[in-house]
Design a protein around this nucleic acid. Structure first.
Lengths: 233, 233
DNA sequence: TGCTATAAGATTGTATGCAAAAATCAACAA
DNA sequence: TTGTTGATTTTTGCATACAATCTTATAGCA
């Protein structure tokens, strides 16, 4: 029996490992730049190298790991240049998700997003940053879900995962936070009006500001050890 | 020595296999729906199952193969619903590539694209479909390259690869072909003017028409055996 | 001291073996 | 004929073994 899950779900080991390693990266257990020694991980997880290596190849293909032939895997790191490269693509995808979401959004889905929005607004007024991030991320997930396009979801999440490699606790200025909140007000309005063009425009702008926040976090945090990755907004 | 390449390039076997299998899928050597028997492929390629399986996992993650636990891999097939799901995402990415390309395009790059454009126009007037497709694809590659965003390139090509699973020889009507050619005229004009908004709009529209062509090809070609995948335009 | 060269050790890449699951097929009954 | 059961074969999933490559530590030399 492997030590990963007590009640083995209907999945293969390598597949489970992909998820497990992803979590280890996002949680900070494996930090950017760390080498990923196969044998050590195998001992730790109680498995053999074969399924682990299959998982490493997949994560390498996703851009979360850097695979150096004959020299093992490293957790990928993110430069400011990488951010500038990834964010425009995410922006295009998120804009699309806004358009599709507006076209398909049910009243029930909108109601849920609105509820989350006000919950988030409350966290904003109370200056509860962590809670704000959590709900914020949930809202974006809801919009993406509402777009009802699994391919879009996969592609977007792949990029969002790479961004999460920049695991520096977000430190939004009050000014930027207020701005983000205003943008979310616009989003809600656009969603209610089912105005896809408007929503995609707001989302693009929103992401543009987010990019600066992330870049600044990278600049300030370079070299330091940190906790789990957080959402930026 | 493995039988894949005479002069082993500086790469690992599994990586080479990813490319090799991709080619086999695109060339039609492995057709959509085919099972991919590990042992048989290993014998054929003169390798063992371990690196092959690593490659299969990667291609599964890319969506070119469908991995069924304990039941092996199948070459993925493409339904019309899949097309409708993938094309909007490609559209968003191609629109972005147009905007970025306009922002960065050098005069030399534009000159090359213009040359290709006129070459393609010649193939169009002569009704040389295959040549038209080839040059057409080259033009789109040039625009993508000009965008100078590797992440965008990777994501776009991943989707383009999945579309190529619909390996039916394109059968454009003359009407649609003429329309595509007019769209390319608009593209060239937008590129020359470095009008990113305009180019991204034309590219989106262009892709929308392409979607219909591909869907029609799927409808007409279902079940038949075909040659290598072709570009659609 | 600082550099190169070389050899030992560690790590990765690939092949093989074995157990478990699925697919196939044959016998049989309805 | 059709459908069901069970044994046999095939195929996959994982573990292990061996080979190739890289890393490092050390010795020799200028």
């Amino acid at each position: 029996m492997n030590q990963i899950s007590e009640f083995a779900p209907r999945t293969t080991l390598h597949e489970e490992l992909v998820g497990r390693l992803r979590d280890m990266i996002f949680s900070g257990e494996l930090k950017g730049g760390d080498r990923v020694p196969e044998q050590k991980l195998c001992d730790m997880l109680g498995i053999s190298r074969t399924p682990l290596r299959e998982a490493l190849k997949v994560l390498g293909n996703e851009g979360l790991l850097e695979l150096l032939p004959n020299r093992g895997a490293r957790v990928a790191t993110l430069s400011e240049a990488d951010i500038d490269e990834i964010f425009p693509v995410m922006g295009a995808l998120e804009a699309l998700s806004g358009e599709l979401a507006c076209a398909r959004l049910t009243d029930a889905e909108f109601a849920e997003i609105r509820a989350l929005h006000y919950q988030m607004a409350l966290h904003h007024t109370r200056r509860e940053l962590a809670d704000y991030f959590r709900v914020n991320q949930h809202i974006h997930e809801c919009i993406l879900k509402a777009a009802a396009n699994p391919t879009l979801e996969v592609q977007y999440n792949a990029l969002a995962g790479r961004i999460r490699l920049a695991r520096f606790r977000a430190n939004m200025t009050d000014k930027r936070w207020d701005q983000a909140m205003r943008e979310h007000e616009e989003m809600l309005a656009a969603l209610e009006a089912r105005d896809g063009k408007k929503l995609s425009e707001v989302l693009s702008r929103h992401l543009e500001n987010k990019r600066e926040t992330v870049k600044q976090a990278i600049r300030e945090g370079t070299g330091e050890a940190h906790g789990p990755a957080v959402a930026y907004d």
